[in-house]
Write a protein that binds this DNA or RNA. Structure first.
Length: 277
DNA sequence: CTTACCTCCTGCCCGC
DNA sequence: TGCGGGCAGGAGGTAA
């Protein structure tokens, strides 16, 4: 499940592979991957546009083209494969970008959860476009305790759910939310109305920390992430609680527990992360 | 304005 | 061994 660091890794890898290439044709074999516009318009408009630059916001990958912006969200299992020459399509490949130099970029998505949006460059992604509902990145100086406090006002959801909510902060998914909760000694089910100002500052600080460290290690590779674009994640060796059920907490040696919070598989240390009631 | 629930999909795990 | 059922999981949509 690609979160901010994994998408950043994909973005950096793709920059070396497809920057300045011009699209000759696009094949789409699973229509629901394309959120907007219609599949026919999507394919047609992409033709003859070149990749001017790549960007990322939260977990969204952004390709700046000549006239449009292509936004790709990998959701659970989306990944890219790049080939120098025409390559047979794997059964889980649903979108193929063919470039004029003969190379191809294949979008592979086992569960077909990923989405692509194509929007005009004339619209502002953050005020009118598909990213308008998103919150700040944890690195953003505007993402301070006051900001979080205002976002959480009148809300009684769990910390886990709040950190998964991309309209509050972008970039954290199930893995890194568990890590941040542990680093802040917060039980993931603690409701946000019980958080102190210190907790909010701690959350921002540790979200920055965990994301920066994961980016530097190329992201987290859980299971065999067989993409040839962004494969080398090593952060899985640094995880403090996620995927560590029954293993010793690094602080107190208590066994890490896996439970359900906000309907998500959630790992935490029952000793270091006491729930507040 | 909330929060809760449904949907999309497939591979995998479990029990029989 | 083979089969069916249940389940996980981002985020958009919708209902209450």
């Amino acid at each position: 499940m690609p979160e901010l660091p994994e998408v950043e890794t994909v973005k950096r890898t793709l920059e070396h592979l497809i920057l300045h290439k011009t699209i000759k044709a696009v094949d789409v074999t699973w229509d629901n991957i394309i959120y907007e516009p219609s599949v026919n318009e999507f394919k047609k408009r992409l033709c003859d546009q070149s990749i001017q630059s790549l960007d990322r916001y939260g977990k969204y990958l952004i390709l700046n083209l000549d006239h449009d912006i292509l936004i790709s969200h990998l959701r659970m299992e989306g990944k890219f494969f790049y080939y120098e020459k025409a390559h047979p399509r794997n059964k889980h490949v649903h979108v193929v970008f063919k470039f004029y130099d003969g190379s191809e970029l294949h979008y592979h998505d086992t569960r077909k959860f990923g989405k692509m949006n194509l929007v005009s460059k004339n619209i502002d992604l953050f005020t009118d476009g598909p990213l308008k509902k998103l919150g700040f990145e944890p690195f953003d100086p505007r993402a301070d305790a006051d900001y979080l406090s205002s976002k959480l006002k009148n809300r009684r959801i769990s910390v886990k759910q709040a950190l998964l909510d991309q309209s509050i902060l972008v970039g954290l998914g199930n893995i890194y939310v568990d890590e941040v909760c542990f680093m802040c000694a917060l039980h993931p089910a603690t409701t946000v109305d019980l958080l102190t100002r210190d907790d909010l500052e701690c959350i921002i600080l540790n979200a920055q920390k965990v994301l920066e460290k994961a980016i530097n290690l190329g992201g987290t590779t859980i299971r065999s992430y067989q993409s040839n674009v962004g494969v080398t994640g090593r952060f899985q060796n640094e995880l403090l609680v996620h995927m560590r059920k029954d293993q010793a907490c690094h602080i107190c040696k208590t066994s890490i527990v896996k439970g359900q919070v906000a309907k998500r598989g959630t790992y935490y240390c029952p000793h270091c992360q006491k729930e507040r009631l």
